[in-house]
């Protein structure tokens, strides 16, 4: 399965630790997603996977490809930049949508909007 381009042992151990740490953090994040009680709790959980989970896995990949291919593998930088830019945007949009829905239905203990025009918009 693995093409053995004689990876040195130190590199193999380093890659293993990084990949395992990344995968474990992502798993913890997703367990949190499944376990926490309300939506506003859960919105914090996936960021574990998208912050350091991704960073560790990608670092492992950088180390592996740099060692085996004898050149700098920088593809991962793109994935990292992409993930770190897009996740906050999606989470923010989702949180706003959830807030909007909870307010129009008046469920949960969601703080009211600071905007005085809000109720008119909600009823429209």
């Amino acid at each position: 399965m693995i093409e053995t381009v004689d990876t040195p042992v130190w590199a193999a151990i380093l890659v293993s630790v990084l990949v395992l740490a990344g995968a474990l953090l992502t798993l913890v994040g997703c367990i949190g997603l499944a376990r926490l009680e309300t939506f506003y709790h859960r919105i914090h959980a996936p960021t574990l996977g998208t912050s350091f989970g991704t960073i560790f896995l990608l670092l492992g990949s950088v180390v592996y490809f740099t060692v085996t291919n004898q050149r700098l593998a920088v593809h991962e930088v793109l994935v990292f930049v992409f993930v770190s830019v897009t996740t906050p945007v999606t989470l923010m949009l989702l949180a706003r949508a959830a807030l909007y829905r909870d307010r129009t239905e008046r469920n949960g203990n969601v703080p009211p909007s600071a905007d005085p025009d809000y109720t008119e918009q909600g009823q429209r």
């Binding site: 994040g29 914090h44 574990l48 830019v85 906050p88 989470l91 807030l99 600071a114």
Partner: peptide, 25 residues
């Protein structure tokens, strides 16, 4: 907003431009 949301444990919910306040969970 990106910093606050990307940090696990805090999430940016809503910015109110009129009062210049932000709602964070």
């Amino acid at each position: 907003a990106c910093i606050v949301t990307a940090t696990p444990g805090s999430a940016w919910l809503e910015y109110d431009a009129r009062n210049n306040t932000v709602l964070i969970h």
